[in-house]
C-alpha cells in the first residue's frame, strides 16, 4: 500500500498546529428546555391537530351562540323536537329537517310550517340545540379549567410545603393525605354535591375536593428528589434563601410535570361534570352543560338521536384532544426521552 502513497506531495506532511479549543466547539445550537420541548411537540402530529381542534372548540364556545339568532335558554314549545336543518346542506339530503313523527318519516319543518333553520335541531322545549351545545361546552370547559386550576394551586402548595420542609411537617401532612386518598373520588364527589345546592361552583368544589391529592403527591415526590440534588445543595451552600431556592431552582424543574398533570386533570374534570349531570346531580335546566345535554339527548335516543350525538361528539372530541395533548407534552417534556 505504500506504493500508492508515495505519490502524495511532500508538503502535505507539513506539521500544522490545530487550536485544540476548536475541538471543544459545540456544533449544535444550544436550546433552552422550552425551545427543545417545542421542537419535540411540533413533531407530534396528533398533539398539534388536537391543539387546533381545541382552539376551534374554544372559539366556537364563544362565537357559536352568536352565529344563530336563537337564545340557548329560550323556550318555544311550538318549535319543539325539530331535527337539524342547515341551509345548503339540506339539498344534499342531509340536515334537511326530516325526522320521525310516530313511526312515519316526514319533514317536520314543513309540517309545522317553520321557515327558520335550527342547525342542530331543537329539544323537547323548542330550545335551539346549536347555541345550547356551545353554551354547554363553554360551561363544561369553565368547570374543568377552574377545577384543574384549583387542583394545581392547592396540590403544588401542599406537596411543595410537605416535600420541602420535610420532617414532622411532612409526616403530619402525609398522614392526612393517606387518609384522604383512601376515600374514593366517586363517593366524595357525590356526597359533596348532595350537601351543596347544585350549580357550577358546587360541581367545581366537589371535583377539586380530592382532585389536588394526586398533584400534591407528584409535586412532593419531585421536590424530595430535587431538594437533595447537588445544584440545590450548591445554591444553599452559596447562601441562597428558601424563597430563592424554591423560586429559582425547584419550580422551574417542576413546571414540566405540573403542566403535564394539569393536562390530564382537565379531561378528568370534564368527565366528572358530564357524569354528575348524567346521573342527575349536575346543573339544573335551563342551564346546559355537555353532561346535561347528553342526558337530555339520551332520553330521546330512539326518536331524535341527533340530540345525543352532537354533545356526545363534542365531549369525546374534547377528551381525546386533551389526552393527546397531555401525551404529547409528557413525551416532549420528559428529559428521560432525550436522545
Amino acid at each position: 500500500m505504500t506504493n500508492k502513497l508515495e505519490k502524495l506531495p511532500k508538503d502535505s506532511f507539513e506539521r500544522i498546529t490545530i487550536d485544540s479549543t476548536q475541538a471543544e466547539k459545540i456544533s449544535k445550537p444550544s436550546l433552552s428546555f422550552w425551545q427543545d420541548a417545542w421542537l419535540r411537540i411540533r413533531k407530534n402530529k396528533a398533539a398539534i391537530v388536537s391543539m387546533f381542534i381545541l382552539i376551534f372548540i374554544v372559539f366556537m364556545t364563544f362565537a357559536g351562540p352568536f352565529m344563530v339568532k336563537h337564545d340557548p335558554e329560550a323556550v318555544k314549545v311550538s318549535h319543539a323536537n325539530l331535527p337539524p336543518k342547515v341551509p345548503g346542506l339540506e339539498k344534499l339530503g342531509i340536515f334537511d329537517g326530516v325526522g320521525k313523527l310516530g313511526s312515519k318519516t316526514v319533514n317536520l319543518y314543513e309540517l309545522k310550517k317553520i321557515d327558520t333553520y335550527y342547525w342542530f335541531g331543537t329539544d323537547s322545549l323548542g330550545r335551539d340545540l346549536f347555541s345550547r351545545l356551545w353554551k354547554g361546552t363553554q360551561i363544561s370547559l369553565l368547570i374543568a379549567f377552574v377545577a384543574a386550576f384549583i387542583d394545581v394551586v392547592v396540590g403544588v402548595i401542599y406537596g411543595g410545603i410537605s416535600g420541602y420542609y420535610g420532617g414532622r411537617t411532612d409526616d403530619i401532612m402525609q398522614r392526612i393525605v393517606e387518609v384522604l386518598i383512601g376515600i374514593p373520588t366517586l363517593v366524595i364527589v357525590i356526597l359533596m354535591i348532595m350537601m351543596m345546592d347544585s350549580g357550577i361552583w358546587s360541581i367545581i368544589i366537589a371535583i377539586s375536593i380530592t382532585g389536588w391529592i394526586g398533584m400534591s403527591r407528584i409535586v412532593r415526590g419531585q421536590v424530595l428528589k430535587y431538594k437533595n440534588q447537588e445544584f440545590v445543595l450548591a445554591a444553599r451552600t452559596l447562601g441562597a434563601s428558601d424563597r430563592r431556592i424554591i423560586g429559582k431552582h425547584l419550580l422551574p424543574n417542576l413546571m414540566a410535570i405540573i403542566i403535564v398533570n394539569m393536562m390530564f386533570t382537565i379531561p378528568t374534570a370534564i368527565f366528572f361534570e358530564a357524569f354528575l349531570s348524567f346521573i342527575g346531580l349536575g346543573l339544573q335546566a335551563p342551564k346546559a352543560s355537555l353532561g346535561t345535554l347528553i342526558n337530555d339527548g339520551y332520553k330521546f335516543i330512539s326518536y331524535q338521536p341527533y340530540m345525543l350525538f352532537f354533545p356526545a361528539f363534542v365531549l369525546s372530541l374534547l377528551m381525546i384532544a386533551f389526552n393527546l395533548i397531555g401525551d404529547g407534552l409528557r413525551d416532549a417534556l420528559d428529559p428521560k426521552m432525550k436522545d
Binding site: 379531561p267 357524569f275 347528553i294 365531549l315 369525546s316 381525546i320
Partner: peptide, 8 residues
Amino acid sequence: GISIPSFV
C-alpha cells in the same frame, strides 16, 4: 377507550 366516557 381512555378518552370517551363509558356512558357515551
